[in-house]
């Protein structure tokens, strides 16, 4: 059954086959997407018509990703969005971690529940509720004071706020997990040596939290880059990559989508591998 116990041959073979099938199931769509990015064909399917890089660099009939202004622009929007969202939500998530781990105040439990709620609220609901609220606020300001608040109408910044609203929660969870293990006598020692609260946080606690803050940045960047459900309701004229690709997938696709997928899969796999190697090294130290 487990490593240390004997098993019948039949059991071991069945179980191993199951696991192999599971990993095939897991990787088949990704591998096939990647392979077909290099197929010299107008549609992303077999038969294999020869190797080509046209879907990356091509111009003319087969417009590759790097010469496709629409996709490049969407990529740029997603990238700027992910930078903005990851910075905002990492700052907020860290604040929340400090608030819930180190402070005590009335209704703390209720507020904590509110903070973790975005994990169980479907992204679509978050999207429509933020859309209705900001639209009402913007209408109110326009009708009563004649002030135009266009940044809370569907636009780049509204998408950023929408993603920020739930990504901050994930960062808070990541940072809290590390802050829990922090030895608070270190803070007391610093206070005794005359540091103020700000100095203690800046020089001691934040230094200690650095790995989790970097982790939070990476996580929020990824979550923002690939978010679809919340974004769908808040987009304005600037389409982030998942929305732009979705429209293309629905309308019939060319292998340029495979090329983009290949780049993204490759980038995330490299990040995962680097992460693995770094964490192994840390264990050895």
């Amino acid at each position: 059954m487990i490593r240390s116990l004997p098993n019948s041959k039949f059991y071991t073979i069945t179980f191993n086959t199951f696991i192999v099938l599971y990993f095939v199931f897991l990787f088949a769509p990704l591998l096939i997407t990647c392979i077909l990015a290099f197929n010299d064909s107008m549609i992303p399917t077999l038969p294999w018509k020869g190797f080509t890089l046209d879907w990356f660099f091509g111009t003319g009939k087969k417009t590759g990703f790097f010469h496709d202004p629409l996709n490049l622009r969407a990529f740029g929007v997603s990238f700027r969005l992910a930078i903005a969202v990851s910075l905002m939500s990492t700052a907020m998530g860290t604040c929340a971690a400090f608030l819930f781990e180190q402070e005590n105040f009335p209704l703390k439990n209720l507020m904590y529940l509110l903070m973790i709620a975005p994990i169980v609220i479907p992204g679509v609901i978050l999207g429509i509720s933020i859309l209705s609220f900001t639209t009402s606020v913007a209408d109110f300001f326009k009708n009563n004071f004649g002030i135009r608040l266009d940044f809370i109408r569907p636009s780049f910044w509204l998408v950023a706020f929408g993603q920020f609203s739930f990504i901050s929660t994930y960062v808070a969870m990541v940072v809290s997990a590390r802050l829990k293990k922090f030895d608070r006598t270190l803070e007391d020692a610093a206070y005794n040596l005359g540091a103020n609260r700000f100095q203690v946080i800046w020089y001691i606690t934040l230094k200690y939290l650095r790995p989790s803050i970097i982790g939070g940045l990476a996580l929020s960047f990824l979550l923002s880059f690939e978010n679809f459900n919340t974004t769908l309701f808040l987009v304005g004229a600037e389409f982030p990559l998942p929305i732009a690709l979705f429209n293309r997938v629905r309308d019939g696709s060319t292998p340029v989508i495979n090329a983009i997928s290949f780049l993204l899969i490759f980038a995330t796999s490299v990040c995962a591998m680097v992460n693995l190697i770094l964490s192994r090294k840390k264990k050895e130290d």
Binding site: L222, F228, L245
Partner: peptide, 11 residues
């Protein structure tokens, strides 16, 4: 870690 859209597209 890969976007849901790409995974579904693969299928």
């Amino acid at each position: 870690w890969v976007s849901e859209l790409i995974r579904v597209y693969g299928w």
